[in-house]
Structure formats: structure tokens, C-alpha cells
């Protein structure tokens, strides 16, 4: 028998600190698998964000720069401008990217920076204890929307992929989920595509991953999978929103 599934080389042997059933771990793994597959580990520079994925550097066996909350796309821009031949990616939560870092993500995408952004949308501020995020669903109870999010006052859950896909500078935008084995495989394909876009100098690539936070959703990991299927995917459809085939040139 041949080994068909093993720990990717781009991850250290360290165990994740994530809660049981948290999808951050799955997403870390598939990003690492993609880096392995493209054989770019020793020329990849990761940019971590502030959120439950802040310890990216403890897990990935690559160079990593920590960014202030929301600023990862700007930090990644700085790194990539210095090393155009390195693979630079950010790994950001929905509070980080869709709240405090909205400006940075929009303008980095609009400039068509040749980087890859992995956006982990778990509809909540995980790290700080489950407050409302811009992506929190209507009616969703969080520690700061005790009666459930209402569009009056709190607005609607923000659809980052749809928004970014409208920007000319953006080359690849997809939304995926990791709630079933089939979806995990599709997610890996999308993330591989996003990194390949960068390798081929195609410009800005973005993958939104719907992710479970069983702890702050106050659900079992199994129920969290169900919530992604029944509640999140209908509102946040899984789709490739944009895929350029020819790079922008002068």
C-alpha cells in the first residue's frame, strides 16, 4: 500500500492551538499542501494577521511576517515589491480583512498586487470572544448582538468576494468551503489556482473560505458543518467569481 495522505512538508510538526473542529486547521493544511505541490516553500513569505490565525509562523515552515490588525495586504505589498520572484500570501480573518482592514484589501486588490490572499470567513470575531463581524449573518447571536444581528443599525453581512470581483485590478476571486471532503478538495483546487496565478505573474488572487467557529457559534463541530451548508452557503454562494486568463500589461 502507498501512503496517499500525510502531513504536508510546509507545516512544522507542531500541533495547532485551534479549538476542536475549527476549520482554521483544515485551511492551514490545504495552503501548506499547495505550497508543497508548487515546490515553492523556500521562496514563499507568509504574512499573518491578527485573529485566531495569528500564530501562522508557529505552524508554517516558511518565512513569516506578522502584520498589524487588518494591514496584512499592505505589509505583503511591501514584501512583494522588494521580492517580485517570491510567493507572498496573507492569511486573514473576516474581522481583520472585512472590518478594520477593508481599505487595505480593496486597494491592494485594485492595484493588482501579485499576491495571494486567503480570507477565512467564520462570520465572527473568533479570537476576541465572538463579537459581531461585518460578515455575521442576520439574526446571528454574538456577544455584541445578543438579540441577533439586525440590518437596522448593524447593516447586512458583507460579501467581500463579490465586491472585490468588481475591481479591474483583481485577477482571481473564488469562494469555497471546507465543510465536506468534496468541498475541501474544491477549496484546495481554488487555492492552488490562486497561487498558480501568482507564480505566473497574473496579479492579485483571492480565495474566501467559509469556515466554522464552533466555539463562538456555540455549536458542536457537526452542527457547525450543517450551519455552513444550510445558512452560509445560500447567502455566500460557492463560486469562482473571476478568473483572468491574460495578465494585465501596459
Amino acid at each position: 500500500m502507498k501512503q496517499v495522505f500525510e502531513r504536508p512538508e510546509s507545516l512544522k510538526e507542531v500541533s495547532f492551538h485551534f479549538c476542536p473542529g475549527c476549520h482554521h486547521g483544515i485551511i492551514h493544511r490545504i495552503v501548506a499542501e499547495v505550497i508543497d505541490k508548487l515546490e515553492v516553500r523556500t521562496r514563499t513569505i507568509g504574512v499573518s494577521s491578527v485573529g485566531c490565525s495569528v500564530f501562522l509562523y508557529d505552524y508554517f515552515n516558511i518565512d513569516v511576517c506578522e502584520a498589524p490588525h487588518g494591514r496584512a495586504p499592505a505589509v505583503a505589498t511591501g514584501v512583494k515589491r522588494v521580492y517580485k520572484d517570491r510567493i507572498v500570501f496573507t492569511f486573514q480573518g473576516d474581522g481583520d480583512l472585512a472590518a478594520i482592514g477593508t481599505s487595505e484589501i480593496i486597494h491592494t486588490a485594485n492595484r493588482g498586487e501579485n499576491i495571494t490572499v486567503i480570507f477565512v470567513n467564520n462570520t465572527v470575531f473568533g479570537m476576541t470572544g465572538g463579537q459581531m463581524a461585518p460578515t455575521t449573518m442576520l439574526g446571528q447571536e454574538t456577544t455584541t448582538t445578543p438579540l441577533g444581528r439586525s440590518f437596522i443599525g448593524d447593516g447586512y453581512p458583507i460579501k467581500m468576494s463579490e465586491m472585490l470581483a468588481t475591481l479591474e485590478g483583481c485577477s482571481f476571486v473564488a469562494r469555497v468551503a471546507v465543510n465536506t471532503p468534496a468541498n475541501v478538495r474544491k477549496a484546495r483546487k481554488a487555492i492552488l489556482k490562486a497561487f498558480e496565478m501568482q507564480v505566473n505573474n497574473m496579479g492579485f488572487s483571492f480565495v474566501e473560505v467559509l469556515s466554522a467557529c464552533p466555539t463562538n457559534w456555540k455549536m458542536s463541530p457537526q452542527d457547525a458543518l450543517k450551519r455552513i451548508k444550510d445558512e452560509l452557503i445560500p447567502y455566500f454562494p460557492l463560486k469562482i467569481f473571476k478568473e483572468k486568463t491574460i495578465p494585465d500589461t501596459l
Binding site: F16, P20, G21, C22, H23, G25, I26, V178, P181
Partner: peptide, 8 residues
């Protein structure tokens, strides 16, 4: 099973 395991 392995694809879904968050802790590898």
C-alpha cells in the same frame, strides 16, 4: 476522514 481532520 483525513481531508476533514482539522488537526492532521
Amino acid at each position: 476522514c483525513a481531508e476533514m481532520c482539522p488537526d492532521i
